[in-house]
Measured scan of single mutants.
Amino acid sequence: ALRETGVIEKLLTSYGFIQCSERQARLFFHCSQYNGNLQDLKVGDDVEFEVSSDRRTGKPIAVKLVKIK
């Protein structure tokens, strides 16, 4: 799958939103999709991810998040 990059724009307890670098979009992500310690993730962090689609709504979502050092 194609990896994309973006910036954490909003972060809540169990989910957040990424502002994409490659496209004009804000993508939802669930915190279970982040492969690191959530305490280390904060607004403004650069992340890399794959784009999938929500099974219920069909909308694009970010999965398999990795923080870019």
Rank of each mutant, 00 (worst) to 15 (best):
C20A: 15
K64M: 11
Q33M: 13
S53N: 06
A1T: 14
K10H: 06
N37Y: 08
L38P: 13
R55D: 08
L2V: 04
Q33P: 06
Y15G: 03
S14M: 09
E48Q: 09
A25M: 14
I61L: 15
S52R: 10
D40C: 10
R56Y: 04
V63L: 14
K59Y: 04
A1S: 02
V43A: 13
D54E: 10
E50N: 12
C31S: 12
Y15D: 05
V43S: 06
T5D: 02
Q24H: 04
V66N: 02
R3E: 01
H30A: 05
S53A: 11
R3P: 02
F28A: 10
D46S: 11
R3D: 01
F49M: 02
D46C: 13
D40Y: 06
K67H: 02
V7C: 13
V51I: 11
K67F: 02
V66C: 12
Q24A: 10
F17Y: 01
R26E: 12
D46K: 14
C20P: 10
F29E: 00
L41W: 03
R56C: 10
L41G: 00
I61G: 07
F28W: 08
T13C: 01
L65V: 11
S21A: 10
F29T: 01
V43N: 15
P60Y: 09
R56P: 11
F29W: 02
R26Q: 15
T57Q: 08
F28I: 06
S53L: 13
G36A: 12
A1W: 09
G6V: 00
F28M: 06
L2H: 15
I61C: 11
K10R: 11
Q19M: 07
D45Q: 11
E22V: 04
C31A: 13
C31Q: 14
R55E: 07
P60I: 14
D54Q: 07
Q24N: 14
E9S: 14
G36L: 05
G36F: 06
Y15F: 12
E48M: 04
K69E: 12
A62L: 04
Q19S: 12
G6N: 00
A1R: 02
H30G: 06
L38V: 06
V43M: 05
E22R: 08
S53E: 14
E9W: 04
S32V: 08
Y34D: 09
F29A: 01
K64C: 08
T57H: 08
R3Y: 03
T57E: 11
V51T: 05
S14T: 03
S21M: 06
L38F: 12
Q24T: 11
I18Q: 00
Y34G: 12
L41Y: 02
K42R: 12
S14N: 03
C20W: 07
G44E: 07
V51M: 14
L11C: 05
K67C: 14
F29H: 01
G58P: 04
L12S: 05
E9H: 14
Y15S: 03
V63T: 15
I61T: 08
I18K: 00
R26V: 07
Q24K: 11
E4P: 02
K42V: 09
G36H: 05
H30S: 07
L27I: 12
L11T: 08
L27S: 01
E50C: 07
S14W: 08
T5V: 05
R26G: 11
D40L: 08
D54C: 12
L65D: 02
Y15E: 02
P60A: 09
G58K: 06
R55L: 10
S21C: 06
E22Y: 03
Q39V: 13
V66I: 14
G36S: 14
R26Y: 05
K42T: 12
G44Q: 06
Y15R: 10
S52W: 05
T5H: 03
V66M: 12
R3C: 03
E22S: 10
S21W: 06
S32C: 10
S53Y: 08
R55G: 13
S32D: 13
H30K: 05
F49D: 00
S21K: 10
V63D: 05
I18G: 00
E22I: 04
G16E: 00
S32W: 05
Q24L: 07
Y34A: 04
V47I: 09
N37V: 11
F49V: 01
L12W: 04
C31F: 07
K64N: 12
Y15K: 05
D46N: 09
S32R: 09
K10N: 06
Q39D: 05
K67Q: 11
T13Q: 02
I8M: 02
L2C: 03
G58W: 03
R23G: 08
E4C: 04
K59Q: 09
V63F: 08
V63R: 12
T13A: 03
V63S: 13
D40P: 04
E4V: 08
L65R: 01
K69Y: 03
V66E: 11
T57C: 08
F28K: 13
L38W: 14
P60F: 06
P60C: 11
L12M: 04
L12I: 12
F49R: 00
K59P: 06
R56E: 08
H30R: 08
I68R: 04
V63I: 10
S21L: 13
Q33K: 14
V7H: 10
T57Y: 03
G44F: 04
R26P: 06
K69G: 14
R56L: 14
V43W: 02
F28Y: 13
V51H: 11
N37T: 15
L65E: 02
G6A: 02
E50Q: 14
L38C: 15
L38S: 15
K59I: 06
T5Y: 02
L38M: 15
G36T: 06
K69Q: 13
S52F: 03
V7I: 11
T13S: 05
E9C: 12
D46L: 11
D54R: 08
L27E: 01
S52V: 13
Y34V: 13
R23H: 03
V47T: 02
R3H: 04
I18T: 01
V51R: 09
R3M: 07
A62F: 01
A1Q: 03
K59E: 13
C20V: 11
V51F: 07
D40S: 09
I68L: 05
S32F: 04
V43E: 08
I68W: 05
K10Y: 05
R56N: 02
T13F: 03
Y15M: 04
Q24C: 11
T5P: 06
V51K: 08
G36D: 13
K10E: 03
A62T: 02
F28D: 08
T57W: 07
R3A: 03
S52I: 07
R55C: 13
Q33C: 14
K59V: 06
T57P: 02
K59D: 08
D40M: 07
E50V: 07
D45E: 07
Q19R: 13
Y34F: 09
I18F: 01
Y15I: 12
T13D: 15
D54I: 01
A62V: 10
H30V: 07
C31H: 12
A1D: 14
V66D: 08
S52P: 03
D54L: 15
V47K: 01
S53P: 12
Q33A: 15
V51Y: 12
F49A: 00
K64V: 03
A1E: 12
K67W: 03
C20G: 12
